[in-house]
Structures are given as structure tokens and as C-alpha cells.
Design a protein around this nucleic acid. Structure first.
Length: 107
DNA sequence: TAAATGACAAGTG
DNA sequence: CCACTTGCCATTT
């Protein structure tokens, strides 16, 4: 059974607008658990196939794709570029430009 | 119940 | 900027 935190994370991810990205830590914070960045990762692993989440809009704080498999990184990069998210050198995203900052978030 | 796991984050050198 | 270490915590075994 998914915990409240899990459901909150799913809700946050589903609300990410196209062309924007969110970091694991920020998602966790918006979901009510500032320390739950790592939990976001397993949620993607287990829920991505069941719910149609925009998992590709989730990246790490460095602005890079955290997936380990080369195929996965390549696939996510492709999806993001198709949505208008440009990668600078070294497969990094300019967070100052593409990081989604919902106004409703209360820090 | 304890130990291991992980698509992370922040600190250090 | 890059590599390594430590802290975190829900889920799994």
C-alpha cells in the first residue's frame, strides 16, 4: 500500500508542466518530506509503469539525468529535448531556466 | 526485527 | 568542476 508521502509525490510529478523539470529533493519537499529525495526514486521505479507519470521531467540537483543505464539516459534526454528542454554541454540542464517553481509551494 | 538497497543531496578536498 | 564520503528514509528481503 502506498503511503501518503508516495501519493503526494505522484501528485506533484503529475503536475509538472511540459517543458519544465523538477529535482528529486524539491519534489520530496513539495510532497511534505524534505529528506525524502531517495524515496522519489523508488516511486518512479515502481509507479512509472502503472501511472503515466512524466518521470523524464525529474532530474537531480546538478541538472543532470541520474539514470544509471545508458539507454535510460539517452531516452530521457530525447523526451526532454522534444519538449523544449535544452541540454548545455555535458548533458546538463540549465536549472535557472527550466526548473519548475510552483507558486503554491510554501518553501 | 535487523540489514541491505537506492533514478538523491550536501559537504569536503 | 570532478570524485569521494556521509546523511536520509521508505521499501524490500
Amino acid at each position: 500500500m502506498p503511503s501518503d508521502f508516495t501519493k503526494a509525490v505522484i501528485h506533484v510529478i503529475k503536475s509538472i508542466p511540459k517543458g519544465k523539470v523538477l529535482t528529486y529533493g524539491l519534489i520530496a519537499k513539495l510532497a511534505g518530506n524534505p529528506r525524502g529525495a531517495r524515496q522519489v526514486s523508488w516511486i518512479l521505479h515502481s509507479m512509472t509503469e502503472k501511472y503515466e507519470l512524466p518521470w523524464h521531467r525529474v532530474i537531480n540537483l546538478k541538472g543532470k539525468i541520474s539514470i544509471k543505464s545508458v539507454e535510460g539516459r539517452d531516452y530521457q534526454k530525447m523526451l526532454l529535448e522534444k519538449e523544449g528542454v535544452n541540454f548545455s554541454t555535458k548533458d546538463k540542464i540549465d536549472l535557472n531556466q527550466f526548473l519548475w517553481k510552483p507558486k503554491s509551494s510554501i518553501n
